[in-house]
């Protein structure tokens, strides 16, 4: 009897939780749904229908326009060139900041030196520095280096800003690995980089996935650095999207705006769909073990 009633109330609780989760998911997915619907309508439909009314058919005109002919400020080539810009910035920036973070984390966790705790502490401060604070000094630095308005300059900015986070990620992962691994490898005759390459990196897959997703999302979604440090032909897609939305001849073209926004968000969405499982796993791995 007691058992039965318990399972019944447990079941109720379970369904309650599911219901709540479904509601949350619905709230979070609603804007995406509205965007998708709007991007598939033409202006007439948007004006006459409601936010949630379904489009009459699959009309990809707005997508076409957003991709290749919508006007972003001065030019009218759609957002595709800027999408390419974003990739040119994000890929090297993610790769470099992840690699440097891994090396930093390896040193801070496994090769403590006099002052390494202080070094790590100072690096952590970097995680709390707001974007706005670094704008001016960074602009001076970039022009000093002759990198103002270049893709390389933006890559540098993102690498510098991201290292604090990537180091933190890798360091926290590496402190969970047994230090005796390093000792054993040193006795086997391996040096600093051999140990890193042959033993530590192969164990780092989960944290590499986490860091790559994190950095990819951060850098891809960045607007402030992009708008401040890019030239007109090196703008990332976020800046182009803003220009596109703000450039209006006649009425607002909500369908094109929505399509462009979806295109701009697609890469991060894809990354999450493909690697999201590892992301959650990697984030919790340290917590459970530690």
């Amino acid at each position: 009897m007691l058992d039965n009633s318990r399972t019944a109330s447990q079941q109720l609780l379970r369904w309650g939780i599911y219901g709540l989760l479904a509601l949350m998911a619905l709230i979070y997915l609603m804007p995406l749904w509205v965007m998708l619907l709007t991007s598939l309508k033409d202006i007439e439909e948007i004006r006459s229908g409601t936010l949630l009314s379904l489009p009459q058919g699959l009309n990809f005109d707005a997508w076409q326009k957003a991709w290749s002919s919508a006007c972003t400020g001065g030019t009218c080539e759609g957002i595709s060139p800027y999408l390419a810009n974003s990739f040119l910035i994000v890929i090297p920036a993610v790769a470099i900041s992840t690699l440097v973070g891994a090396l930093n984390g390896y040193v801070v966790a496994m090769w403590r030196f006099r002052g390494s705790e202080l070094f790590f502490g100072l690096l952590l401060v970097g995680c709390f520095i707001p974007f706005q604070v670094v704008l001016l000094p960074m602009a001076r630095t970039l022009s000093f280096l002759g990198l103002a308005n270049t893709t390389t300059g933006l890559v540098l900015v993102h690498v510098v800003y991201g290292i604090a986070f990537t180091t933190l990620f890798f360091r926290n992962f590496y402190v969970g690995l047994p230090r005796e691994l390093i000792s054993a490898a040193r006795l086997d005759g391996a040096g600093f980089f051999t140990i890193f390459r042959r033993i530590i990196l192969p164990l780092s897959t989960p944290i590499i996935v986490v860091t790559v997703i994190w950095q990819f999302t951060q850098i891809w979604n960045d607007f402030l650095f992009g708008v401040v440090f890019s030239g007109s032909d090196t703008q990332p897609v976020t800046v182009a999207l803003n220009n596109l939305v703000n450039t209006s001849f006649g009425g607002k073209q909500y369908n094109v705006d929505m399509a462009a926004a979806l295109i701009a968000a697609l890469p991060t969405l894809l990354v999450y769909v493909l690697a999201g499982k590892y992301f959650v796993r990697g984030l919790t791995a340290g917590a459970v073990k530690g």
């Binding site: 047994p178 005796e180 691994l181 000792s183 054993a184 490898a185 006795l187 042959r198 033993i199 192969p202 164990l203």
Partner: peptide, 12 residues
């Protein structure tokens, strides 16, 4: 050569 309490075998 050293044998450790945790063995410290290379997991990969």
């Amino acid at each position: 050569a050293m044998v450790f309490q945790s063995y410290a075998l290379y997991p990969n």
